[in-house]
Design a protein around this nucleic acid. Structure first.
Length: 302
DNA sequence: GAGTGTATTACTTCGGCATT
DNA sequence: AATGCCGAAGTAATACACTC
């Protein structure tokens, strides 16, 4: 537990400064109010706070600066709030679950593969400090579940479809690729520093991706989908992609426009809602869907 | 007395080292 | 590995001194 304290502390600091800028003294009071006991104490020295400010900048891309005229620390550049909130939420759930063993009957969890979040803390540290890491990676695609040893340069963590991925440069072929956290075992963080690739911006790379598959060679495509009225409500409240734009919203259909790469994972997402959605554009995607459905039908036509 | 340059003050910031 | 303490360096605001 104590290992994750700094993450919680970061959240407290960010939330406080977001709601209102304040001096270090006020912030300390705020942290003291949220401390429970000696085991969960968020009161820290000035020096640690200064280090936290830097870490918050590195991890969350939130700039905190001191403004002398009002004796306050202020967030001058805030990252995408949704993103940081989401990141924090995940950690909070993770923390809550590890505390609440006594409530195990009252909290019903989906039965799924572990997400590999136990490595998250270590990986965040490695990303922050530019340390190379070793791990064993298990492929799902290969039939024999081949396990390989990897040495990679961790660049970013990314969540996609309820799974977490490490975006890292594989030293074997110098290519940047995602590794599912749940497929990583025997994580070993080395002390070997690497140079962060200049100009690499994970946010930018995944901007037009639906999930974890990237396609940097082709430009993203305009995709128009027509959802049924009922399914539309879900899509409205839980957009597929940040580029989602509403075109039609009436009792007949909910039509949206997206700008992304129609990768395999996107195709699967569309197929998962069956007849509730129809691809209007582009025709190539429409064709792919039809092909898939024909192949599916074929499986039952004996 | 306004304007300008300089010294002082009161801070933050940051690296190094010790402690846990 | 995370944190705290210390001291050096840096800096913005203020006070002071000087000139015109």
């Amino acid at each position: 537990m104590s290992k994750k304290q700094f993450i919680k502390r970061h959240h407290l600091i960010i939330n406080k400064l977001r709601s209102n800028p304040c001096s270090f003294k006020e912030l300390q009071k705020h942290l003291a109010n949220h401390s429970i006991d000696a085991d969960e104490n968020y009161v820290i020295s000035k020096r640690t706070f200064e280090r936290d400010v830097n870490e918050i900048r590195d991890i969350y891309k939130i700039d905190i600066e001191y403004v002398r005229t009002i004796n306050c620390y202020v967030i001058v550049h805030d990252a995408d709030e949704v993103k940081t909130d989401r990141l924090m939420e995940t950690f909070q759930i993770f923390n809550a679950l590890s505390i609440s063993e006594s409530l195990s009957n009252q909290i019903i969890l989906e039965n799924r593969q572990p997400l590999g979040t136990e490595n998250m803390h270590g990986l965040m540290h490695a990303i922050k400090n530019h340390f190379e890491v070793h791990f064993t990676h298990e492929k799902y695609w290969d039939e024999d579940h081949e396990k390989t040893k990897r040495t990679v340069q961790p660049l970013a963590l990314k969540e996609a479809r309820n799974r977490w991925y490490l975006i890292a440069k594989d030293t074997k072929d110098n290519r940047i690729k995602p590794f599912g956290l749940d497929r990583i075992t025997d994580l070993d963080i080395t002390r070997k520093k690497f140079i962060y690739p200049t100009g690499y911006n994970p946010e930018e790379v995944y901007r037009h991706s639906f999930g974890i598959i990237t396609e940097d060679n082709n430009p993203p495509q305009k995709i128009i989908l027509s959802y049924s009225y009922d399914q539309g409500k879900y899509i409205k409240s839980l957009p597929l992609h940040h580029s989602q734009r509403e075109l039609v919203d009436d009792e007949k259909e909910y039509r949206i426009e997206l700008l992304l790469h129609p990768t395999y994972d996107f195709l699967m997402e569309l197929l998962s809602v069956g007849k509730e959605v129809k691809v209007i554009e582009p025709l190539s995607l429409q064709k792919k869907i039809v092909e898939m459905l024909v192949a599916t039908l074929k499986q039952y036509s004996n």
